[in-house]
């Protein structure tokens, strides 16, 4: 049971999504893009939790949304690990982290 309005949660989520999107679109540094993607992921997770808290289903306390959030957090962590591995490989092979220079779509 929470007293925080759903609108506020969704607004925060939307704002964070837009922020992450902005980062993805404007940044050239691979690490920053990765971080932006994480911001987007967090916005999405927040959305899951929020909607789950405000759905009058049989499950108490927005449990389904929290389950998805748990899974997504794990998934995001994995994604960061893989992304950073790609960053390392790219840096080692191409000597750059600029996505504008890594245009061959392969390592």
């Amino acid at each position: 049971m929470t007293t925080i309005p759903l609108v506020d949660l969704l607004s925060l989520s939307g704002a964070l999504f837009a922020l992450g999107l902005f980062g993805v679109l404007t940044r050239r540094n691979f690490i920053l893009i990765l971080i932006s993607v994480e911001v987007i992921m967090n916005a999405a997770i927040l959305n899951f939790v929020a909607f789950s808290l405000f759905s009058p289903g049989p499950a108490a306390g927005g449990i389904p949304g929290q389950s998805i959030a748990v899974i997504l957090i794990g998934l995001a962590a994995t994604e960061v690990a893989v992304g950073l591995a790609i960053v390392l490989a790219l840096n080692r092979l191409r000597g750059t982290l600029n996505v504008a220079e890594a245009i061959q779509l392969k390592l």
Partner: peptide
């Protein structure tokens, strides 16, 4: 404004 889920 959906109703919030039942409490734990």
């Amino acid at each position: 404004a959906y109703a919030s889920a039942p409490a734990c």
